[in-house]
């Protein structure tokens, strides 16, 4: 490696650390990940793509409906955020809940699950190939607990983060478990009004 490329490394890192004219209370991940794109199965068994949420600020979350801890807490938090947001802002937001447990989560079950959190929650799942491609695209992974195949009550380990895309489908923010409802609501409001 020559001096030029090394300098490049440091400049790139310095820019990453330094940039950001707007301040966010959640994690800013602009430019770190590719635009929103997927092919999955929707709540009626139909094929859905990113055009389903086109023009909306989209929150992407990986989980499964029988999840005992991370999913209900995060989904509950997002439901609280949606209630806190002014209707004009909430209208622009969609939450895409992608189940990485297609064996147990049928489209019908996903519809019941997401409806419980609100009308702007959309459920989706897919084949292992589709789910693998989507999770790899956003550099997350998931795996099944050891009881898979034997019992109905296996656990699924999955990402705990929510990826936020703006209405252009570009990645903007990452919401983590310890982010507060206020912080998330403030950032979503700011993002939709940019």
């Amino acid at each position: 490696m020559r001096a030029g490329s090394l300098a490049g490394v440091f400049v790139a890192v310095a820019l990453l650390v330094a940039c950001g004219d707007v301040s966010w209370r959640t994690k800013d991940i602009s430019g770190l990940m590719p635009d929103l794109a997927f092919e999955l199965t929707g709540e009626s068994g139909e094929t859905i793509t990113a055009s389903r949420v086109e023009g909306h600020t989209t929150l992407l979350f990986f989980g499964y409906t029988s999840c005992p801890d991370i999913c209900p807490v995060m989904m509950g938090k997002l439901a609280a955020v949606m209630q806190r947001l002014p209707t004009s802002v909430a209208e622009q937001v969609r939450i895409l809940f992608v189940s990485v447990d297609p064996d147990r989560d049928s489209p019908k079950q996903l519809r019941q699950y997401t409806d419980a959190f609100g009308a702007r929650f959309i459920g989706a799942t897919g084949t292992q190939e589709q789910l693998g491609a989507l999770s790899k695209r956003y550099r997350v992974t998931y795996s099944y607990g050891s009881k898979k195949g034997e019992a109905e009550n296996y656990l699924v380990s999955h990402s705990s983060a929510v990826f936020v895309f703006d209405d252009q489908g570009q990645v903007r923010l990452m919401l983590r478990q310890d982010d507060s409802v206020e912080a998330i609501a403030a950032d979503l409001k700011q993002l939709t009004q940019l």
Binding site: F62, R139, T141, S143, H158, M174
Partner: peptide, 11 residues
Amino acid sequence: DVYSVCGRAFP
């Protein structure tokens, strides 16, 4: 915490 956020290869 990025490994917790993105999921680990095994628990």
